[in-house]
Design a protein around this nucleic acid. Structure first.
Length: 537
RNA sequence: GGCGUCGUAGCCAAGUGGCUAAGGCGGCGGAUUGCAAAUCCGCUAUUCCCCGGUUCGAAUCCGGGCGACGCCUCCA
């Protein structure tokens, strides 16, 4: 089964799509660079987790056993700065921000992570790693600091396509201790009052990149399959990680380097800005500088944030769908219009699901029935099961769905092209709605058991493919999941009954007044054959 | 300055050598409806930033230009 798959992955290292072949047949080791937890996460931090969560779901669906690691970097200069500013310990800052990060992941349906190792829990492994690098002649200690010697790595710069001597290197006091400016710190000696850990070179803390090399090795081994992160991490972070690990082990660190595109703030949001260097270098041609600030990269250092609020307003699934609408390597322009549009699209799926549940009496989402058991629409959890379900259908709706399913999978096989695959979901929705219309499944007198049976299978295919993207897994939050819901439901029922009576006696003035009044507060009524339903915008 | 990425309809967004250039949002027309909403059907880019070139054939490859953006410094 697995060997017949034709998955292709874009590899940053080779700058091309390559056939996906794992080191160990049937198994995938995947590492994604997580956050440095010094401040709250912003929307841009969610791009990688959402796409990699989807990649894992897809690989598992295809039959792989996947181990996914996301690191938490909880020791760093910015954490120290933040803890000083707030007068609390670095560990406390880290804990708070880690909780924040995890809550956001949860809200966006990122549930597939297997390990979330923290740098501070892996100090012994980090120190050991550095010792091995020194022993191998790839690193040197100088007055309490340890640096990686980039001149000892002939392949340094290959990932980001740079030459070692084109690097500017960080300035400051550390620069004087380096042999060459491109060398980077593996271990930084502690200044007074800084959090520190003991090491053979004195008390200190790890440099930025080493934790990923150490933790990925501990959990995934010396060479693993996929390493991901944002495009902005290619240099220096991944270049340095790669250099450390390759030199230390004498073997490649990863098979496929995957980088997601960065998010930019739309013109309306002023969370971004051009890089300082760029605007400084530009011979400030009059007014263009101020305009340039209107759209730009989203970054924490420029004050982006408010992710919880955004999730609350938009729902996690909306944001997730918004992110998955485009190919992961492209830049995503973040803005209200896009989110709104994603929401509109999603609503059409929700209506179809509601329609199905209403006319079939079956549960699509998991729900507890009267007997206290959880029931839900059964669906294929694996690619082979899904294939078997539709094998042999030769006409009608199911054949159409079978083709759309094949198209969807083909797009996912091609470097996880979720943006392309989404279109097949839309077409499925349209095909199923058309089927319901044509077979008169809304009409209790005209519908047939066979028609309903076909519908159930069709919906299970939608559920199968939605699940790959982490969509339609549970009922979307309705207006009424809070305390007010029962009251609202009761009021709505009453209004709908009154309106039905008015309509029965052709008193359309009254019925329309009710409908218009509700519309004014954002409630839309839908008159169906079996009664009236309502939905809140 | 060095290294990259991108430029497809009003907007979002697939496609990267050859069937009529996916799909979504929006808009318009129709079916349906008491009227709506929802749903379905049809229409909405003779053309893929511009100019050259390669080719029987290019949105897709090559060269040049224009424009947007990223990295080279902390960043998902």
């Amino acid at each position: 089964m697995i060997s017949q798959l034709n998955i292709r992955v874009y590899n940053t290292l080779t700058r091309q799509k390559e056939p996906f072949q794992t080191i160990e047949p049937g198994k995938v080791g995947m590492y994604l660079c997580g956050p440095t937890v010094y401040a709250e996460a912003h929307i841009g931090h969610m791009v990688g987790p959402v796409i990699f969560d989807t990649i894992k779901r897809y690989l598992v669906y295809c039959g792989f056993e996947v181990t996914w690691v996301v690191n938490i970097t909880d020791v760093d200069d910015k954490l120290i700065a933040s803890s000083r500013k707030r007068g609390i310990s670095m560990a406390q800052v880290a804990t708070e921000m880690t909780m924040d990060y995890l809550a956001n992941l949860q809200a966006l349906g990122v549930t597939q992570i297997d390990y979330l190792p923290r740098a501070t829990d892996n100090m012994d492994e980090i120190v050991r790693f550095i010792e091995e690098l020194i022993a191998g002649g790839f690193a040197y200690a100088n007055d309490g600091d340890v640096f990686f010697d980039v001149t000892r790595d002939a392949e340094y710069g290959k990932l980001s396509n740079r030459t070692a001597d084109s690097q500017q290197g960080e300035g400051g006091g550390a620069a004087a201790k380096k042999r060459s400016s491109g060398d980077f710190a593996l271990w930084k000696s502690a200044k007074p009052d800084e959090p520190s850990w003991p090491s053979p070179w004195g008390d200190g803390r790890p440099g930025w990149h080493i934790e990923c090399s150490a933790m990925s090795r501990r959990i995934l081994g010396k060479t693993f399959d996929i390493h991901g992160g944002g495009l902005d991490l290619v240099f220096p972070h991944h270049e340095n990680e790669l250099a450390q690990s390759r030199c230390c082990h004498g073997q490649p660190m990863v098979r496929y380097w995957m980088h997601n595109g960065l998010m930019r703030a739309g013109a309306a949001g002023k969370v971004g800005g051009k890089s300082d260097r760029d605007s400084a270098a530009t011979d400030s041609t009059t007014d263009s500088a101020t305009e340039a600030d209107a759209a730009g990269k989203i970054s924490r250092s420029k004050g982006a944030g408010g992710l919880h609020k955004l999730i609350e307003q938009q729902t996690g699934e909306r944001i997730r769908f918004f992110l998955l609408r485009s190919q992961y390597r492209s830049t995503i322009l973040f803005g209200d219009e896009g989110l709104e549009e994603a929401g509109q699209s999603l609503n059409a799926f929700y209506r179809l699901i509601g329609r199905f549940e209403r006319l079939s009496g079956q549960a699509f989402y998991p729900r507890v029935n009267a007997a206290g058991e959880v029931e839900e629409l059964a669906y294929a959890k694996t690619r082979s099961d899904g294939h078997a379900l539709l094998a042999g259908v030769s006409d009608g709706l199911l054949e159409e769905l079978s083709k759309l399913r094949a198209s969807y999978l083909e797009k996912m096989d091609d470097d996880f092209n979720t943006g392309g695959a989404v279109s097949d979901l839309f077409e499925m929705s349209r095909a199923i709605n058309r089927f319901i219309d044509q077979q008169h499944l809304e009409d209790t007198k005209r519908r047939t058991p066979a028609g309903l049976a076909t519908l159930s299978i069709a919906m299970s295919v939608l559920r199968e493919l939605g699940a790959i993207m982490g969509l339609f897994l549970k009922a979307p939050k309705k207006t009424g999941d809070d305390g007010a819901s029962q009251t609202v439901d009761g009021l709505m029922k009453l209004l709908i009954e009154l309106r039905a009576k008015a309509r029965a006696s052709k008193d359309f003035a009254t019925s329309d007044a009710i409908r218009d009044g509700l519309a004014a507060v954002g409630i839309t009524l839908q008159d169906l054959k079996e009664g009236t339903t309502w939905e809140k915008a």
